[in-house]
Nucleic acid binder design. Sequence first.
DNA 1: AACGGCCTTTAGAATAAGTCTAAGTTGAGA
DNA 2: TCTCAACTTAGACTTATTCTAAAGGCCGTT
Lengths: 149, 149
Amino acid sequence: MTTELRLQVESRMHAAGLKLTPQRFAVLDYLIRNHIHPTADQITARLNNRFPRASRATIYNTLHALCEAGLVRELYVDGAVARYDALIETHHHFVCRACGTLEDVQPAAVRAVPRCNLDEGYCVESYQLVMRGVCASCKQSENRSKNLS
Amino acid sequence: MTTELRLQVESRMHAAGLKLTPQRFAVLDYLIRNHIHPTADQITARLNNRFPRASRATIYNTLHALCEAGLVRELYVDGAVARYDALIETHHHFVCRACGTLEDVQPAAVRAVPRCNLDEGYCVESYQLVMRGVCASCKQSENRSKNLS
DNA sequence: AACGGCCTTTAGAATAAGTCTAAGTTGAGA
DNA sequence: TCTCAACTTAGACTTATTCTAAAGGCCGTT
Ligand SMILES: [Mn+2]
Ligand SMILES: [Mn+2]
Ligand SMILES: [Zn+2]
Ligand SMILES: [Zn+2]
């Protein structure tokens, strides 16, 4: 499975004119296995537990290279920090205002996909929907504390 | 008209426990008159042509105060820089990848408002749609250069 | 008018995310 | 195996934003 993945990735990277280095593979592998939309810092912290170590510059270079190659998406949702996502099929996001987690929302969960007809001449190439609210587990704790009071 | 506005703003600020200072009014007034979703820097540059001058810290304090008071929205669309919006009614945005302008999209222009039915227990409080593409005037120049070649 | 308390403004230092640079390292094709 | 463009690295730099400590303004009280 990792072998398959490696081959897929290798061919994609190659197509984009990029070498597949250990660092690049480690970053992508981490993103594919962890759909938590981590920041560059989280990725760095996580990868530097184990081999191969990667410097800040390399993390950013790698993330940008992977974005260029279309294997990763850069996501700005809340503040000034970029988050990264290896799920590149069209999908949306839900942000919990209580715990801050950023979860995927499959397009199927959005009942009516928006069709935007802007003024004449505008060309919409992509769109992204960000929903905000309270996630199921935070909702529960909210209710629990309400009952106590 | 400015008088009416000032009174409205004053009561809103007061309700939020905040004084309406000349700096605060100037920032809000600028945002209301200019729907260009400016950054803190653009606001600073613009206001410091005329009275009242405002320091960086005050600009940020003011913008945050106005956000708290619900008179202004902070918007992160592309990356690292916050943009500010005095249009607080629900609406969406269009970003031109060529010229970078960020325009309002009235909800009416979105044909089908998304209804999101997430997993049990999730509570969606708001959502925002960001469309990306090419604006009408950039589209024109693109076409013009295509014809030349 | 002078005083005191509280909120606001200010300049500039501090922080945080990301980019750049210059030097050393590496790995894929010949 | 050899080679060299591509890659990685530490650390300096930049940019947006936040923090801090001191000064200023407003108001009700003496
Ligand atoms: Mn995602
Ligand atoms: Mn807007
Ligand atoms: Zn939550
Ligand atoms: Zn444009």
